[in-house]
Write a protein that binds this DNA or RNA. Structure first.
Lengths: 97, 97
DNA sequence: GCCACTCTTTCCGGCATGGAAAGCAACAGG
DNA sequence: CCTGTTGCTTTCCATGCCGGAAAGAGTGGC
């Protein structure tokens, strides 16, 4: 079992972003509004956190106009998944699991 | 399996404090210097974090003068263990484990 | 009295965070 | 067209946490 290298990641660790990553790790892709509701933050706050994740290269933001509605969907990038997995591994180590 | 109620705890979540709690959860009691070295922070920083944990009622600080040396040992309180366990449960939930 | 050891506390500057509100782009309606 | 709405984004701002450096304080040894 190729153990993931534990690595603490401050970008991932912040509560809202940890949740965002956790969601995206499971569903692969999720819409902005759905994430906002799941994480329970305001539009502006989510937007800012997503931006940080995007700038870190952890999430991909896709904007589409579907059925004349603007739809922004989020997904973890490969780097994002790696960072999340590594961070979770680190948490496991810390928590002694 | 008596599931622990997942509950996010900001006091526990901060990186240095998560480590401190993680250590104390395993060893039950540990000396100030040992924790400081394990967590790799300065005396002042550890002291401040310990204070926060203490004020939250999560760690007990015992000071003893043993062999004419001041010795401060730290231990999780019951509340501290509960909070840590609950927080870890929350992390598991978030991480999808 | 003076020094050493072991934390504590204070004093900083800096960065992250969230709420509120203004901005903006795309599109529907009148 | 002009206006309103939807769906984010950005700015502004006030607060709080954080860690490093340095001064403090308590206890005991010399």
């Amino acid at each position: 079992m190729t153990a993931v290298e534990p690595r603490f990641d401050a970008v991932v660790h912040a509560p809202p972003r940890l949740q965002i990553c956790g969601l995206l790790a499971v569903v692969d892709t999720m819409e902005f509004a759905a994430v906002r509701d799941a994480v329970q933050v305001s539009d502006s706050v989510l937007s800012k956190h997503v931006k940080q994740l995007e700038e870190a290269g952890y999430v991909q933001v896709r904007k589409a106009t579907i059925a004349s509605r603007q739809r922004t969907s989020l997904a973890l990038t490969k780097a994002g998944r790696a960072a999340f997995d590594a961070h979770v591994a680190e948490l496991r180590k810390i928590a002694g699991l």
